[in-house]
Design a protein around this nucleic acid. Structure first.
Lengths: 229, 229
DNA sequence: CGTCAGATTGATCTGTGTCAAACCCAGTGG
DNA sequence: CCACTGGGTTTGACACAGATCAATCTGACG
């Protein structure tokens, strides 16, 4: 897996942080070169002291918390262009989530002083970061409502649609992100077996097809109906 | 119900926003006088265009979303010193939650231009606001995990302890915030009847006592155990 | 008093969780 | 080249937390 060159990094960063100057972008990209991580790598865990934030040049990670019986609850997935880890940096607290690589991923690292510096000196950047945080806040609220109120069947449909929207699909409708039933369960807040049963129910209803981790959405219209829209 | 005078307002604001200058505080308090709202008043609803944020001088509100079958999901409670409504203002989006007064409440209003102005001109304020947003983000993550993984019995215990911590208790252990079983249910993500049954279960176990909306915590130690700590 | 919203209790139903067994591969090493 | 292995998947049987529905009770307030 190739790590992108400096120029490519700047371009990517620029799409997410529209307020950074060329100099600031270059500095970021130069200072900490992008690194690639293999599937399964733990980027950080709950309780770690964070020394900076991460930016995803390419790939996908899961952000999760661990319940006391060891069951993991996936809070969200992050994809290309996403920025994560800033909660702990902003609050100067230890991480309250863990992050693990889902498919091979290239990450950039932004040391905390750099982030705090930018916030202090570039009000537009501060505002942009605030927008990112607020966007996540809205998504969390929605998650809370859905987990609390929707049946797992609705929720899974919604999740599949969300994965399609966020990570894209092949021409034939297959989700680009390949993901285990267990992770789907940990995200939906349900048992792996329940996911399996529901997927085969969807299959019978002509909504999806799947072999292994390749899940193909056959009828997103109907899927939306199932999800409750 | 008295609305606090200008000086009192400044003092309260100052506790939440440590970075605002005397002039900025005074301006805020002068510009939009605090107003008092009666229990049950709807401050704003999902879909409203927000024209500013709110600051709670005293009282309590609930922030909720409405599912399609009309069931409301309470996302969080806000109390004295809390600041809400900023998500929509920062993102310049319509409200994604509704807010209703739980007990008589005095609110200050901060028009959006004022908030955006402060963010632009006072980096320390921007940072402070970011910290507030990040704190909420952490709480949301935790909520997601708990709703997804804990039994209602554990969750309710946790909620009672949280209400005690946030809104305080009388000398005898009675929660200061009086709240309906329905609201407890809407917060825990369960049916009202389930809350009733659990409360009487707690009663049998000597954990709480209650008549009507007055809930008295008898043994917070045991309650913590029930909540799973 | 009458009324009405909220609280309570009981009976019943059902979506999901849990446990156990079998299965399917993909990769490893002999 | 094939048997072995182990992780993920699938299926079935069963238990139970919590939802739902219906009926009654309570207490505050006009």
């Amino acid at each position: 897996m190739e790590t992108p060159d400096n120029k490519a990094c700047c371009d990517k960063l620029k799409q997410t942080f529209k307020t950074l100057s060329e100099a600031e972008l270059k500095n970021l990209a130069d200072h900490e070169p992008a690194r690639s991580y293999k599937k399964g790598t733990l980027i950080y865990s709950e309780g770690d002291r964070m020394k900076g934030c991460y930016f995803i040049y390419s790939g996908a990670v899961k952000v999760f918390q661990t319940g006391r019986e060891g069951k993991e609850q996936i809070i969200k997935f992050e994809k290309e262009g996403d920025f994560f880890g800033f909660r702990s940096v902003i609050l100067k607290e230890k991480a309250c989530t863990s992050v693990e690589v889902l498919s091979d991923t290239v990450l950039g690292f932004m040391p905390e002083q750099v982030v705090l510096e930018l916030i202090r000196n570039n009000p537009a950047f501060a505002y942009e970061l605030m927008q990112i945080a607020c966007k996540e806040l809205g998504e969390s609220n929605r998650s809370i409502r859905d987990i609390a109120q929707k049946s797992v069947k609705k929720r899974l449909a919604e999740i599949l649609l969300m994965l399609a929207a966020d990570f894209g699909v092949e021409k034939d409708g297959t989700l680009r992100l390949s993901i285990s039933r267990e992770d789907l369960g940990n995200f939906a807040g349900t048992a792996t077996e329940t996911i399996i049963r529901l997927l085969s129910e969807y299959k019978n209803e002509g909504l999806v097809e799947s072999k292994g981790r390749k899940i193909k959405l056959l009828d997103t219209g109907k899927l939306k109906k199932v999800a409750g829209y």
